[in-house]
Each structure stands twice: as C-alpha cells, then as structure tokens.
C-alpha cells in the first residue's frame, strides 16, 4: 500500500514519536531523581509518641483493624508495682480485689499477679487489648506512666496513610524508621534516682 512519497512522512512521525517517548522517559526519571534525594533505603512504619498521646480513645476505633493494632504496652522498668494501680483499678475503688466491678479495663486484658508484699505485677494480655487507652490514662494520672500505647508491628498492616494518624487529635503519630519501630518512653529510673 505504501507509496514511496509517503515514506518521509512516516519517518517524521516516527521521529516525533521517539522524541515524545524519550521526553516522557526523561520526565519520569527526573521526577524519580527529584524525590530520590530524600529517600531512605529502608522502610518506614507508623508509630505513636506516648509523650504526645492524650488517650482520647480513637486508637481503639479508628484503626483499619478490629481490634486495633494499637495496644497497651507495659514498660516494666518504669512500673512502681503499686498495690493501688491507677491503670488497673477504677477511680474510687476501695476494695483492691480483681473483681470486675473494680477493673478499669473493659476487656479484662490486664492481669494482676502478686509478687511480694506490697508489690503486684501487671501484665497485658494483648489479644484481649483493644487499645482504648483507659489504663494508660489511669497510670499516667496516678502512677509512673509505665503503661503506654504503641502500635504493635506484628499486627499493624502498614497502611500508606495510617487511619488513626489522621484522626489523632494530638498529632502523636509519625513515620519512623522500621529498624527502630517503637517509641516507648523509658524515663530513666536510674537518672531520677541519681537526682535524688
């Protein structure tokens, strides 16, 4: 079908097409190079900063997972092993027993174990924990703040945009490097003692 005088036209078209292709390629490459300056080889994961957290309870409801990937984590090193634990007991509780009427945790996820007089150990049963932060609030208000909310990375599905982060009123969520995925605050016991 092709006549010889059509040839230059086709060649020109080919040339233009190649040029366009090359410029698109350069465009993509340029864009990649532009952002590549601020890249890291590793991954980032979401984590919340307990120092900013106000325990509003949205971690329990706004995660894409049910129950939430945010759990209460117990930093034993900070714990005072109190008998009257603000994280375990409802306020105004008078009889310090493990009865349901005394427990702050709505799902019975904190286990209280006698260690020695007058100390008790508190352990979080994570599968039961829904991340509501009630105990965290209690511990922060009356105790040492050893109960803290954290995203558990064995559960978290690593959404590109964490759906709790965008509803967190305290702006406590941020992307952190995956090799240091936890932001537990461990107010150094020793340092404090030194000061005294």
């Amino acid at each position: 079908m092709e006549t010889p005088e059509n040839d230059p036209k086709i060649n020109r078209r080919k040339f233009i097409a190649n040029g366009a292709r090359a410029s698109v390629l350069i465009g993509i490459g340029g864009l990649a190079a532009l952002v590549a300056k601020k890249t890291i080889a590793g991954q980032t994961v979401w984590q919340l900063d307990p120092a900013k957290c106000i325990q509003c309870g949205r971690c329990a409801t706004n995660c894409v997972l049910t129950p939430s990937a945010v759990k209460c984590v117990h930093v034993y090193a900070m714990c005072g092993y109190c008998d009257l634990c603000g994280g375990y007991f409802k306020p105004e509780t008078k009889t310090l027993t493990t009865g349901a009427e005394n427990q702050l945790c709505p799902t019975n996820a904190i286990k209280r174990k006698f260690v020695e007089d007058p100390f008790f150990e508190y352990t979080i049963d994570e599968p039961l924990c829904i991340g509501c932060g009630k105990c965290v609030k209690g511990c922060g208000a009356f105790g040492n703040g050893s109960l803290q909310l954290q995203i558990r990375h064995n559960i978290c599905v690593r959404c590109n945009q964490c759906s709790i982060a965008r509803s967190c009123p305290a702006d406590a969520f941020s992307r952190v490097p995956a090799n240091q995925p936890y932001l537990l605050k461990e107010s150094g016991q020793e340092e404090n003692n030194n000061k005294k």
Partner: peptide, 14 residues
C-alpha cells in the same frame, strides 16, 4: 529525661 513520665513511685527492690 524529666520531661517524660513522672516517676511518682520508686522502682521497688524485690
């Protein structure tokens, strides 16, 4: 460090 958590109760010596 003091900005973080309040150490109201000392760590017990077991």
């Amino acid at each position: 460090l003091n900005v973080y958590g309040v150490q109201r109760f000392p760590k017990p010596e077991f």
